[in-house]
Design a protein around this nucleic acid. Structure first.
Length: 486
RNA sequence: GGCGUGUUCGUCUAGUGGCUUAGGACGCCGCCCUCUCAAGGCGGAGAUCACGGGUUCAAAUCCCGUACACGCUACCA
């Protein structure tokens, strides 16, 4: 049952950048919230001071914003259940922890890291497990008070009872059970006074009234600890949904070593947010039909957790590239224009002057030939500058001894044209071919080479119209000279 | 090692006992279109549904076992 107003959260740890796996988790949370008229909350899990990265939170927020995943409550925005940054909630965790201690659901532990390491090594030799031995559970009230008074460093541990079956239902996995004997007395509060993920996450999810916990599969194994915590506190549990992992081509968990994992990396490479979101959504979910191209809004309309897969998915950049091509084609020309101007400003053509009208023509001509904005420049540099060299393979294939003579005749006929449109060029070319008694192709390919330096591109007449008569003639003349002397 | 989860074309997936000679998409190959390259259209190759047992008139679909992969096994999240 989905409550009237489901509340879900994306709770990343600010370690520097937004991982694409994190993006998918954020997206599913967002889609679920929007689909069900709920709230999407952002919470920062910065309880590990050792991994604190300067500026990571800001970066996370701006990346989420770039993607268009607006949150309803969270840092820099506020909300009824704040603060939304865990390092600002330390007093809450401490207080709740003490409640647990008073009920013997948790206990102080003064064991040194040395003893813990030694214990673990010993256990590894004798038994198959490595669990804390509850040594400090047996400390007397006096010993504890004494240790505390002495200022001995301590942690607080979860007191897990043996021989209990801990079960929960997961929307994507179904019924899952664990024997408490396999659950360790997890540290809840660290010696630096910060909570661990397990404690903070449960307290915050409860206090922030989170109804559905949608997170990665790596959390499945520690969910029994969370279930125990909810029970110990006497709180109602949220619904769990553990998402399948995103994988490298070799099926291991998606990692930096085998390619790009940061959303920023893909953004830098020129992927559109629309494509990235669409692609990442399909890694583990489908609408139940053959539809593969989605806008964010369309995803919101058809998303459901019930249709999320159980198995991990390989992050396949080729399909992402195809989706980028599809989304780029559907982007309004005005947006493409702006993006192209930005790309131009960052290219060797930054000093060139091009009118909007001109660039819009280029966009129309190249639209179905590019997967990325930058390809407008890479695949058709001739729209921004006359070619300085000519493709040798094309010369070999198309350029003949009498080509200069043919082109001279063509230039003559082109010169006579006044404000030519596509059809004028076409007629002039046909006329020239007739006069020379040669096929149109002989002219077409050599002009293309002359004006673009390449053998591939948009339809020739479109090319000529865009470049303009004077430019075309000047380029042909220059090509004839250049290629002749080679 | 222990615990947990998973396993359908190279990849993403459809499939919830008969409609399946396992469907679609990306990629790949070919043909058509055509001035080139794309786009588009048509077609092709590509999956003994991990393997082995069982249940059933009937299993990719249900049950059991095995294998393999992955995750967790921290005072990291």
């Amino acid at each position: 049952m989905i409550s009237d107003c489901p509340r879900v959260r994306f709770a990343p740890s600010p370690t520097g950048y937004l991982h694409v796996g994190g993006l998918r988790t954020a997206l599913y949370n967002y889609l679920f919230a929007k689909r069900n008229n709920g709230k999407f909350i952002l919470r920062i899990e910065d309880t590990d001071r050792a991994r604190f990265v300067e500026g990571a939170v800001e970066n996370l927020i701006s990346t989420l914003k770039w993607c268009g995943l607006d949150y309803d409550e969270g840092p820099a925005k506020g909300g009824e259940y704040g603060p939304y940054v865990q390092s600002e909630r330390l007093a809450i965790y401490k207080e709740k922890c003490e409640e647990l201690i008073a009920q013997k659901k948790a206990y102080y532990c003064f064991c040194t890291p040395e003893r813990l390491t030694e214990l673990r090594e010993r256990q590894q030799k004798t038994t198959n497990q490595s669990k804390y031995d509850k040594h400090c559970l047996n400390l007397s009230k006096e010993e504890i008070a004494d240790n505390l008074a002495k200022g001995l460093p301590y942690v607080v541990r979860l007191n897990v009872e043996p021989d209990v079956i801990i079960a929960f239902d997961d929307i994507v996995r179904g019924h899952v059970e664990f024997n408490s004997n396999t659950v360790d007395d997890q540290v809840l509060l660290k010696s630096d006074g910060y909570p661990t993920y397990h404690l903070a996450n449960v307290i915050d999810d409860h206090m922030m009234k989170i109804t559905h916990v949608i997170r990665g599969e790596e959390w499945l194994s520690s969910t029994p600890k969370h279930v125990l915590l909810y029970d110990f506190f006497g709180w109602e549990k949220p619904v769990f949904a553990h998402l399948p992992l995103l994988l490298n081509p070799d099926k291991s968990k998606l990692s930096k070593r085998q390619g790009d994992v940061a959303v920023e990396d893909y953004r830098t490479k020129g992927f559109l947010k629309e494509a990235l979101l669409n692609f990442v959504a399909l890694l583990g979910w489908n609408a139940g039909d053959d539809k593969e191209y989605f806008s964010l809004q369309e995803m919101v309309e058809s998303f459901s957790l019930e249709r999320v897969n159980k198995s991990g998915a390989v992050f396949n950049v080729e399909k992402l590239t195809w989706l980028n091509f599809e989304h780029l084609r559907n982007l309004p020309d005005a947006e493409v224009l702006q993006a192209l101007r930005d790309a131009l400003a960052d290219s060797e053509f930054k000093d060139g002057v091009y009118t909007d009208e001109y660039l819009l023509h280029v966009i129309t001509a190249m639209k179905e030939r590019v997967s990325f904005i930058k390809e407008y420049i890479e695949k058709s540099p001739y729209f921004f500058k006359a070619p300085e060299s000519f493709d040798a393979d094309v010369i070999k294939k198309r350029w003949r001894e009498d080509t200069p003579k043919h082109l001279a005749k063509l230039v003559e006929n082109f010169s006579a044209l006044v404000n030519p449109v596509k059809e004028d060029y076409e007629q002039a070319l046909h006329k020239t071919a007739e006069e020379l008694e040669i096929g149109n192709g002989k002219l077409i390919h050599t002009i293309r080479l002359s004006v673009s330096g390449m053998g591939v591109g948009p339809g020739l007449y479109d090319l000529l119209v865009i470049l303009g008569k004077d430019e075309v003639i000047s380029r042909i003349n220059k090509a004839v000279q250049t290629i002749k002397i080679q």
